[in-house]
Every structure is written in structure tokens, then in C-alpha cells.
Design a binder for these strands. Sequence first.
DNA 1: CCACCATACTCAATAATCTGACTAATCAGA
DNA 2: TCTGATTAGTCAGATTATTGAGTATGGTGG
Lengths: 189, 189
Amino acid sequence: MALRHAVLAALLDHELSGYQLAKAFDLGVANFWHALPQQLYAELAKLEKAGMIEGRDVVQDTRPTKRLFRVTDAGLAELERFTEAASKPSFLRDDLLVKIQAADHVDTGHLIEQLTERAAFAQAKLDLFGQLLLRMRGERDEEEFLLHGERIGPYLTCLGGITYEQGNRDWCRRTAEVLEQRQAARARS
Amino acid sequence: MALRHAVLAALLDHELSGYQLAKAFDLGVANFWHALPQQLYAELAKLEKAGMIEGRDVVQDTRPTKRLFRVTDAGLAELERFTEAASKPSFLRDDLLVKIQAADHVDTGHLIEQLTERAAFAQAKLDLFGQLLLRMRGERDEEEFLLHGERIGPYLTCLGGITYEQGNRDWCRRTAEVLEQRQAARARS
DNA sequence: CCACCATACTCAATAATCTGACTAATCAGA
DNA sequence: TCTGATTAGTCAGATTATTGAGTATGGTGG
């Protein structure tokens, strides 16, 4: 049941349409949750019926009419309840890790390729997140912003994303390096 | 469809029963995939029907009879196919991140509590993983083991788990610290 | 001796997520 | 001018994952 809360949390900052929300929850960006458009539209409908968000139609002359949503008091109360409850631990579920687990029984070339790719992807997200941080804190330095900024939630989750992607990148590079060295050693013998 | 491959990868090292597998895929331990017992029993049944694993009953005098499974050649071929295919990126889906995203609209005390808890959990996993590494490489030092060890897949995923949990722990601590400082600053004003 | 935990599983039902296709309009580039 | 990308959604269906309960036996702590 956390998708609904993720949607509520995303709508705290700005009014958003389903489409904009879908962009935010997409692969490249999602720094605190991931979901597909279909899920989001369904969840928005449910949340509106439950009175936790309110939508208003915005007619655009050049683009299709969109529906912007904002969180209601009931929605905020729901988020509050959610926050009080214990968090369920987050678990790993990663194709690439499964492949590495099987590394000794499986073609090394493909593994190295995919590790390199993943490392590059992580680096790209790091660059993006870095820019995002700058945009959020503006002129202020990080220490100052975190102490006195008015809205630090997204900044903190972005920092989380950075920590995660750094770990990801470094592990991928290290692992690729190990596999390459073994390949080279095997080739020499 | 990666659960089946995770099961295959887990069975590469040792013959395991569904119950043992369930232990390994449990929260506390799972360092490359997570799943519940029911899923695993179901997957084992499917894999056996598909000829990718073979089970044999082991009668025990003091415990219920168990069924141990090992990977067949067909299973290995399936893993090989899986490895060749591109990995789907892994995404974040974490209750705690959602709560932090909403940090400015929600009770800070609960957040700090949950961050501290999560940090302690991450540290516990780090200790566990550290011991696991030692047990896997035995007397050898890491560099040597990674270059010449015969089975390094599980070692590499364990290193992945360590990187992940370190990031997790550090971010939780940092975030809790920030929230505490803000709480203190607000109390003074 | 009795409650509880560990081993070793099974079954059913619901909830969450993903795959894939479809509508319909505008805009930018070759 | 035709193609493809972008905006803004909707629908059906399949697959995965979670929740909750139940079976049966043996060992352990109080």
C-alpha cells in the first residue's frame, strides 16, 4: 500500500497531472519510488474517490486537457498515519546480482558488458542528481540549506539516491575489474 | 521471471531443500534476491516440472523428510540464456524514502526513530556479511581469492550487499542527524 | 508437563505490478 | 509532407508477490 503514499508525497510540492507524475516516477528520475503510468492513473483515481486528493481540469489550447491534483487535508492525515507505522524493510531484487551470483558458471563477457553499462547508468543518474541538488538549494551551501531550508524532504531523498548510485557504480566497476583480471589470467595459462 | 533464475543461481553451490532455500532468501540474509517461502516452493515445483532442477527425497529419522534439489544441464543452459539477455534496471521502492520525501509535512520523531532502526539493521547485516566473506575466502586475502578462487560469484554479490548496506547505514545516520539538528533549532526558537 | 520454537511443507485469496495495445492531438525535423 | 516524438491519457490481461492460515513432528526452556 505504499504506492498511494508515494503519490501523496510527490504531490506535496506541486500540483501535478498523471502524466507529469508518470514522468517523475519513471526509471531515469525516480529517486524515491518507481511505478508505471498505468499504476499511477489507477492510484490517482482511487485517491480522488477516497477524498485524499482533489483534481481540477486545466484546458490547454495546444495540448490535450489535463487534470492537476493536489493533496487534501485527509490526504495529509493519511500520510501522517503512514509515517507513524513501522517501515517494511526494503529488499534487493536485481537481475544483475543474480547473474553475478552465477558468475562462475556463465559467460564472463556478457557480465562485464552489463556491469559496465550499469556503472555508466549510475554515473548518469549521479550527474542528474547533482544538478537537482544544486537547483533545490540555490545559492545556499548544503549545511546551511539542510538546517534552515523550508523543504528538505526531496533534498534528503535525492542524497539517498546519490549514496545508492555511488555504491552501485563503485561495485559495478570493482566487479567488472575482477572479472576482467580473471579472464586475462585464464587467457595467459 | 528472475525468481526462477535466482533459485537456479542459489542451487549452484549446494543441493538445498525448499525450506533451506527459504531461509537463504529471507530478509536477514538475502544478499542477491528476496522471496517468501510460498513463492519458492511454487517456483521449485515449476522448475522441476520444466526439468531444470532435479529433486531427491532425504528421509530423516528425527525431522520430516525433505526434498533436496540440484540444477540440471537444462537449468544451467537456462541460466546461461538469462545471463546473455540485458538486465532490467533495478529500482528503488522503499517505504522509508517515501516518508523522508514527506519529511517537512510529517512528525519528525517517528522519522528519526525509523532511520535509527534502519541504520542498526544495516549495521547488523554488515557484520553478518563480513563474517560470510571471511568464511568464503578462508585463509586467503581478498585480492588473492578474487583472482584465483574457484567460486567467487557469491563473494561478489556479498561485496555488493556490503556496499549497499554501508550506503544505507551512512545515509540513515546522516539524515537522522539532519532532522535532529532541525528539531533542536526549532525548539530553541 | 506444557507452551513455544524449529523443521518441512501446502493451500487459497487478494493485492501489486507489469506487458502490451489503443486513442488523439500537436510539434519538430528531414 | 511524412515520420516520429511528445503530451495526456485509458483498457484488458497476465504474472508476481503478499497475507493468512493450516498440517505434522520433535526438541527446548521454565
